[in-house]
Amino acid sequence: MGNEMVVNSRTSYLEWFKYKWSNDPLFSIFIGLVIMIIIQTLVLGFDYNSFGSWFQSWSNNWINILRNNAGIGIVALGMTFVIMTGGIDLAVGATLVATGAFAMALLDVGQRGILGIIGVTGYPAIILTIIFVLIFGYLLGSLIGVSVTKGMVPPFIATLGAMMVFRSVTQHLMQGYNPRVPVEFLQIASFKIGNLMIMPIIYWLIIAAILYYVSKRTTFGRHIIAVGSNERAANLSGVNVNKVKLRVYALMGLLVSIAAIIQVSRIGSMDYAGAGRGMEMDAIAAAVVGGTSMMGGRGFILGTVYGMLIIAVLNNLLNLFGVPPLLGDAFKGLIVIAAVLLQRKDKSS
């Protein structure tokens, strides 16, 4: 009797696993992530005898991974929404540089700091800077949104153009100008909670939680799916398609400006030529690994978080294995393709 029950529960676990695997699109992604974390843990070496210090180094490694990927993780969340509407945003890296430069120009403690000139300094300056930068990011995103909706420029083209314009103008304006950011500003990223520098991770988690809720329970979030899945049907169901798209790009700009603030406050400076280069591709990769369909209509905020973590753990693993850094992207590319192949297989079965 007892034996039978064990057997039964075993088969039911297997059934449950099979069912989840083929019906829950996030399940296979989650399993992939777990496997990668197990490999990573094994590679790092597990030590029973001195569990305390092992756990210390393990969690330190994780905090590093998460902190390093928080900015791009936030951008990837916005990218998920953009892709779900059937669009794409290539301009995120350039927007990051533009909003980052704007933040530094506002804050500069040298001769040319904009807020300094009008006499605002200290904490008020920092708060104002955050507000202005968020607005600026929102506006840059809206600009792209308007050209996609009112101007009917395909998103790929509109954001390709914006990418070139934003970065080039920023580089030109910031030529020969090296603003210095006040030390207080750096606290945004480096404020320590119980000796741990985890602020960027907290921002990421909060934003992910908010956007998860938005995608599941709000009209805006559900309209995104409708628009990406069938634009005509959405419009004929009373969805203001242009408004949804506009808001998605504006939100993208807003999220990028948050990432810019985190980045500037982490290092205190910005390389206008190099910062954010390839960011759009990394964000797209995270979304795609997380189950977002490039055709629109299908996407998961939680999946994108998993996707970002998978890519991050992979990078960490490559480091630990001593793979030459230039080969890193090759593995990333393979993971993206493998993830899509895995999900494709699920769908057909």
Partner: peptide
């Protein structure tokens, strides 16, 4: 014009 494939029955009926 009417069916949104990425949404379930309930959502299609309540959008």
């Amino acid at each position: 014009n009417a069916i949104i494939r990425d949404m379930d029955i309930f959502e299609n009926s309540s959008i």
